[in-house]
Amino acid sequence: MWPALSKFLWRLGGALTALSLAGCASRPAVLPAALWPAPLDTGHRTDVLLLGEQHDAPEHQRLQRDTVLWLAARGQLAALVLEMAERGHSTAALPRDASEAQVQAALQWQHAAWPWSAYGPVTMAAVRAGVPVLGGNLPRSAMAAAMQENHWDDHLATAARQQLLDALQQGHCGLLPAARLPAMARIQIARDASLARAAQEAVRPGQTVLLVAGGEHVLRHRGIPTHWPAGLTAKVVSALTDKVQAATETGIDMVITTAPLPPYDACAALRPPTK
């Protein structure tokens, strides 16, 4: 390893340790994608590594596969937990040489929501390494009930809850009726709780559970980590295509910056035509 890179990674390891204790109070360390996953080689083990993504960024899925391969090669990967499969489904009973069709069946893969071409490589990398892949997302059959569970309204601190409501409104192009936001927030928090439980149950001493989910889900102050006991250790890493956002993001220990995506306005088709 080059001396300059070695020194950088040593400092980064210390920064990650401090950030994991400070939570969302500090801005994250920022790392170019070309240097990932070398920072994992700092000697600081964690129960769960949360890796946030932008769903339409292929480079983010490549980073996930690289992470699986790196951890598995060192015997450090306890399990891969995916937002892209529902909780209760697992590849644990499959052999390493299981076919992709067998893996998809075991996870009850929903192709319309999650293209296998994007997530198949990271999933199969874990299967080939003999590591179980676990669905973590809240089952669709439970979402209607989650919308009525008002105990979730008090789960987050006031500021974090408002940030979640704002993010949900922005994610729906500003077109979601305000009256629907509380129910949408309950589903989001219930999904985070489901993912958190799947990861917590997979924790093994001396190993790390890799949890892959959208960037909003992994945030330390309003996402999955809010559902864990104090004794569980976690690092939050998120891949971002927006360098401005990367420099100001909170709730993350480290940001991996990737190339910007081509400009695309996903809300254009939903806006009423201008006169």
Score class of each variant (00 low, 15 high):
A92I: 04
A98N: 03
Q110S: 13
E86C: 04
A105H: 14
A101F: 03
E83K: 09
A106E: 01
S99R: 14
E100G: 05
W109Q: 08
A79T: 01
V81N: 00
G88I: 05
V103I: 08
A105S: 15
E100R: 06
A101S: 13
A101R: 14
L80Y: 06
R96D: 02
H89T: 13
L94M: 04
A85Y: 04
A98H: 05
V81W: 00
H89A: 03
P95M: 08
Q102D: 14
A85R: 08
Q108W: 04
Q110V: 13
V81Q: 02
E83T: 06
Q104P: 13
Q102K: 09
E83I: 05
V103A: 15
L94W: 07
L80V: 12
A85N: 05
E86S: 07
A106K: 12
D97S: 13
L82P: 02
S90R: 06
R96M: 07
L82F: 04
T91L: 12
A101E: 15
L107Y: 01
E100Q: 13
H111M: 13
A98W: 03
A92E: 11
G88A: 11
R87V: 12
V103E: 10
A78E: 02
Q104Y: 06
E86T: 03
Q110H: 12
H111E: 15
T91S: 15
E83R: 09
Q102Y: 01
L94G: 04
Q110M: 11
M84L: 06
A101N: 04
A92R: 10
V103D: 01
E86R: 07
E83Y: 05
Q104I: 09
R87G: 12
L82T: 05
A79M: 02
A78C: 09
T91Y: 01
T91R: 11
D97W: 10
M84S: 13
M84Y: 06
W109N: 04
A106P: 09
A79L: 05
T91I: 10
A78I: 03
P95K: 06
A92G: 00
S99V: 11
Q102V: 11
Q104N: 10
Q108I: 00
E86G: 00
E100Y: 03
